[in-house]
């Protein structure tokens, strides 16, 4: 099938038709052209690996080639902007975390808001509070104790300040009090190296980023910073932080990962995507086993359900950023009310 396609396209290429720019024409049954998923983070990361699996599933279901393109840089805005600039015909998909997408505007990074997109969510990644195996911490209370007794002594590795892991640690700190010292690393892998080697004491990177090290017992997970237990296949379940601090509530800390289509794509595209999500994606074994092996939570939702969840998460994240002085604009100004 692929081979025949090559010959057909070779013939098309040889005809002079390719000498003129191809106009975006109305297609009879979407999709008839290859689909590109733009991942705004580098290959090998948490978003990238789930998108590559998703691409395989979509390719099978829609019967068109689906490729993943990594357009990295500037905290994901480069890739997202590329999708905004591409034709809104449903063949170029944005991807990443909803919390990033929804706070670009308050951070003054990119002029876009949640309402400009159709959300098709795939997984949720909750932050896990982990410590090095050589440290003495056994429970989140131990960590809180050090933060209060000697503010600033606890070093916490995160992928950047601000970042989702940093926000999660701040949510924990504002709940238990005290202070910590954030040390910035360049993504999941370097952060984990720092925890394993003992350069920093703790981290709050998300589940998939830590999965390999938790399975290898090179870090000790203390709690998931959400209200749900997390099981990574091949290791013991990690208790939710609410088991220790029942009032802890930070919906923004659990990153909602999915793909995003501009809101003005043809209705036909939205309908087909909705069907795809309900039938094929929701039942995808590849995605389910990826999630359970890598510390992700499978969450195939779309439409209003996805939007409600996303709005709550974005509101919490945006206001936390604003209260920390990390944003340039008040969330109120761009229509995000305080939760």
């Amino acid at each position: 099938m692929l081979r025949r396609k090559f010959i057909a396209s070779a013939a098309a290429a040889l005809s002079a038709s390719t000498l003129v720019p191809q106009a975006v024409t109305a297609q009879d049954a979407w999709p008839s052209e290859p689909i590109q998923i733009v991942v705004p983070w580098s290959a090998g990361g948490a978003t990238d690996s789930v998108m590559r699996i998703l691409a395989g599933e979509v390719q099978e279901a829609l019967e068109v080639p689906v490729t993943v393109v990594n357009q990295t840089g500037a905290r994901g805005t480069v890739g997202t902007k590329a999708v905004i600039d591409a034709p809104h015909d449903g063949t170029t998909w944005a991807s990443g975390g909803v919390q990033d997408l929804g706070t670009y505007e308050v951070q003054g990074l990119l002029d876009t808001s949640l309402e400009d997109w159709h959300l098709f969510l795939v997984v949720m990644n909750a932050p896990v509070l982990s410590v090095g195996v050589d440290t003495e911490f056994q429970t989140p209370q131990d960590v809180a104790e050090v933060m209060n007794a000697e503010p600033g002594k606890l070093t916490v590795g995160t992928s950047g300040i601000p970042s989702t892991a940093y926000s999660a640690m701040q949510a924990f700190q504002s709940h238990v009090g005290g202070d910590f010292r954030a040390v910035a690393y360049d993504g999941d892998a370097p952060t984990m190296v720092a925890v394993v080697s003992g350069e920093v004491m703790a981290t709050t990177q998300s589940g998939p980023g830590q999965a390999a090290m938790i399975k290898g017992e090179r870090v000790r997970p203390l709690a998931v910073l959400s209200d749900r237990e997390l099981t990574i296949e091949g290791s013991d379940p990690i208790p939710p932080v609410t088991e220790f601090y029942p009032d802890f509530n930070a919906p923004g800390a659990t990153i909602l990962v999915g793909i995003f289509l501009p809101s003005d794509v043809p209705q036909e595209v939205v309908d087909r995507m909705g069907a795809l999500w309900e039938n094929e994606i929701a039942n995808s074994e590849a995605l389910q086993s990826y999630a359970s092996e890598n510390g992700s939570i499978f969450n195939p939702i779309h439409g209003e359900e996805a939007m409600d969840l996303a709005q709550a998460a974005v509101a919490e994240t945006a206001w936390r950023l604003y209260d920390d002085g990390a944003t340039e604009v008040s969330p109120e100004e761009v229509g995000i009310p305080r939760p």
Partner: peptide, 17 residues
Amino acid sequence: GFSVEFVFENLFYVRLP
């Protein structure tokens, strides 16, 4: 011209202008 276009557009799915 044609072989580069063929390789990149049809084998690698890169959209050339």
